[in-house]
Nucleic acid binder design. Structure first.
Lengths: 339, 339
DNA sequence: ATGAAAGCGCTAACAG
DNA sequence: CTGTTAGCGCTTTCAT
């Protein structure tokens, strides 16, 4: 494990650092360095386990071959999966990934963005809180390569890979309607996130297009950090009253899980009395009692495309054409909406 | 977003780079730089949004304030959660985290270790494949700070934070026995991982201590990458034959999920005909039908302690005292083992 | 085909 | 109290 440097191998071989550096960076041929010399260098390097100091290399090159990933929470299975696909794809292109969680806090996110820039990441993938418009704009103006995932800023022209939230929820709501449900509730997170707004719109659109009224009593938006406490009341409010709801659309997997938990505690039959449906799903939604019908998000495609767009952007930071991708969700029909 | 450098602020303020650097690193007082000068520097830096280039800083300092995390798979909820806690704790100490997944492949893990060293991480947290003994030893000999989590090398003296695998599984098996089950099967992954070996030992110990025979027919170890295909046969083999099993211990959450899936497909009543119990759990095991009894691993403590030990090691890389932590699991009793 | 030398942005002796 | 200077390890022009 004795560390060996470029200088060392140049000395040992009686060559210049230049020659060694060139060869090690595959620029031997183009600089007409003799095959033999090249081989000597390569062999020696391999034999002695030479590994360039990436900080030095990065400093010199002005790039780090690293991409930064900022998500709300890496332990949310949804982001963990995206991170996984991002990592795989990034590796294909020779990039490493550094990640950080913003915990849905705009100030932290902002700090993270700059902290990553300091670390000289070559590009950024951000699932933003959507509350850092100014900083996103700065990135854009500075022509710094980045792509937004999952959440985007509708009014900023940039690269992004998101999901058709409106379509997905509209689909879900229609599915419930088709299954004969008449009074459909909606439980979401209180937020200005476009994704959540769109999901609500999708729900409302499905209702109105099918000639149903939108009733405010049937819509609950819970506080992100206290949704578990608020869930019981929300459910009671919707279900246990005259003219209660006979189905509920949940806008995230953890809301669906929490909601089902409460429904069970209240001994409310699912889907007998109330059908439920979830936007996105946890690992085991097919095993849950009852198996939960859900719109599955294409996490693999989201991760892959984000990296592809980003790397492309990094390589030729000339192209001003934004890549705007809206992916479709897939409705996995299970038992929680009746048969 | 115009980039500003140390040099710039020195020039603007008519000072030397030294003075500026010192002040910016909180060493102004100790170098007796006038309060006033300090204030000028600090103000100017803040006003112009000065952000040091971490690659340059790192190169100069010989450290990166980054810790590397290597896990088998970041999209496994278990590792995602650990990563989350590691990230939080690391941030407390001013460290960033770069992660990579080894995909349970020793060669990749090895590559990752060295790749991270090249990137000058200050320390490493590794959930190892347990097949890189030589490299772990090299790290140790080189006195490079690292701590093993989840998996360790029983014969190498190092820092590690693991879980009492034997105790946990013994507990699980005993629980089944206490619930009147007589023929308990065991489904695991085929592997030399100590964790898995210990889990099997725990199972066997519980049986023999309670006067039960260990029957090889009741033990199935599936191939990691094909466990889903093999599960059906394994289950059939165990359950659907004369003198079949009346309970199954699964050694991971995904095996339990997969096993339950197959049991359902085969219309085998759980826990009526077969009780099941899982080592570790997925997010929604309490909602599953039936809710699955599981040994919960203390992911928070594992992440936190790993970072604490590591940072301590980084700071004073003198102490030769190894930190060996074995954490306890917690049995969450639910319906899948009968009442 | 190869080498000398400058420079990436920052830190840190050391001298004044 | 402040500035000069020499690196950290690597890349890269520009001569030779």
């Amino acid at each position: 494990m004795k560390k060996i440097f470029l200088k060392d191998i140049a000395q040992e071989l009686n060559l210049s650092k230049t020659a060694v550096s060139l060869v090690l960076n595959n620029r031997g041929d183009e600089n007409k360095i003799s095959k033999e010399t090249q081989k000597r260098i390569l062999d020696f390097a391999k034999k002695n386990n030479y590994r360039p100091n990436q900080m030095a290399r990065g400093l010199s090159l002005g790039k780090s071959e690293t991409i930064g990933l900022i998500v709300p929470n890496i332990s949310d299975i949804f982001y963990a999966k995206i991170a996984h696909f991002i990592e795989l794809k990034a590796k294909e292109f020779g990039y490493n990934v550094v990640f950080s969680s913003s915990n849905e806090d705009a100030a932290i996110e902002k700090e993270l963005i700059y902290s990553m820039l300091n670390r000289q990441v070559d590009g950024l993938i951000i699932a933003s809180t959507q509350e850092n418009r100014a900083d996103i704009l700065k990135l854009k103006e500075a022509n710094f390569p980045f792509v937004l995932i999952d959440r985007y800023y509708p009014d900023i022209k940039t690269n992004y890979v998101i999901v058709d939230n409106l379509g997905g929820t509209k689909n879900m709501t229609s599915h419930l309607l088709k299954n004969g449900r008449k009074k459909i509730g909606f439980i979401s997170i209180k937020s200005e996130l476009d994704a959540l707004l769109q999901r609500r719109l999708g729900y409302e659109l499905a209702l109105s297009e099918n000639g149903f009224e939108i009733e405010n009593d049937h819509i609950k938006e819970l506080d992100l950090f206290h949704y578990q406490n608020k869930m019981k009341v929300a459910i009671k409010d919707m279900v246990q009253k005259e003219n209660g709801v006979d189905a509920i659309v949940f806008t995230t997997h953890y809301l669906a899980a929490s909601g089902l938990r409460e429904l069970k505690l209240l001994n409310i039959e699912v889907p007998g009395k109330v059908a439920i449906i979830s936007f996105d799903e946890l690992g085991a939604f097919d095993l849950v009692d009852p198996p939960i019908t859900a719109s599955k998000q294409p996490v693999d495609a989201m991760g892959n495309e984000a990296v592809e767009i980003l790397v492309n952007e990094i390589d030729k930071n000339n192209s001003k054409i934004e890549n705007e991708r809206v992916l479709q969700t897939e409705l996995l029909i299970r038992k929680s909406c009746g048969v």
